[in-house]
Amino acid sequence: MFASLRFAPLFLLATSFVSAGVVVEKRSSTADIQTVFNTLKGYTDSILPQITALSAGGNASDDTVTPLINDLTAALDTATASLATLSPVEARKRQSNDDIANLVAGILTDVTNALDGLLADASSIPALGGLLAGVDTSLNQVLLGLEVLLAGVLNLVATLYVPPPFAFSHY
C-alpha cells in the first residue's frame, strides 16, 4: 500500500500532461442556438415597444429613434457574434428546428412591425434610411449565421414569417 501512495504524484503528473495535450471540442446543439435567439428576443422585446410607442405617439424623430435603432443593430450584431462561436449542428430533432424557426419568425415579425410603423414618420427622421440599412445588414448576418448552423431552417422561417400588410412598401 505504501508503494502505491509513493507513485500517486507521478500518476497525477502524467494525467495532467495527457489531459493538457488533449483538446475536447464541444459540439453545439440546437439548445445553444435557441439560447442565442432567446437572448436576442429579450433585447428586441425591450427595444421594439419603445420604437412602436414613439411612432404611435407621433414623437418619432432622429433624436428619439436613432439610439433605439442603434441598440437594435447592436443586439443583432451580438447575436451574430454569439452564433459565430457555435459549430454547425448535424444531428437534430425536427421539433428543435421548429421551435427555433418559430422564435426567429416571431423576432422578424416584431422587428418588421415596429420599423414599418416608422415609415409614416420618415419625413421627420432624415436618418431613417441609413438606420434601416444598418438593421438590414445586421439582420442578414444573423440569418446567415443561423443557416450555417442549421442548414435549411430558413425555409421554415420563411413560411412562418408574417410581415405587416404593407411592410416597407413606402420605399
Rank of each mutant, 00 (worst) to 15 (best):
M1Y: 11
A3Q: 13
R6W: 13
F7K: 15
P9I: 09
F11D: 08
V18R: 08
A20F: 14
V22Q: 06
V22S: 01
V24A: 09
E25I: 11
E25P: 00
E25Q: 12
S29I: 05
T30C: 10
T30F: 05
D32C: 04
Q34L: 10
V36R: 03
F37V: 02
N38T: 10
K41F: 01
D62G: 08
D62I: 06
D63V: 10
T64G: 08
L68V: 06
L72A: 12
T73W: 03
T73P: 03
A74M: 09
L76E: 08
D77F: 06
A79C: 03
A79L: 04
A79E: 05
A81Y: 04
S82G: 06
S82P: 04
S82Q: 15
L83Q: 03
L83P: 05
L83N: 04
T85C: 01
T85D: 10
V89D: 02
E90D: 14
E90M: 10
A91V: 11
D98L: 10
I100K: 02
I100A: 02
N102D: 05
N102C: 00
T109G: 01
T109W: 00
T109V: 00
N113W: 00
N113L: 00
A114K: 00
A114M: 01
D116L: 02
L119Q: 09
S123Y: 00
A127P: 04
G129S: 14
G130W: 04
A133G: 09
G134F: 03
V135C: 08
V135S: 07
T137V: 13
S138A: 15
Q141W: 06
E147R: 14
V148A: 13
L149S: 07
L156Y: 09
L156F: 09
L156V: 15
V157S: 13
Y161I: 10
P163Y: 10
P163E: 13
P164M: 09
P165T: 15
F168C: 12
F168N: 15
S169D: 15
S169I: 12
Y171C: 09
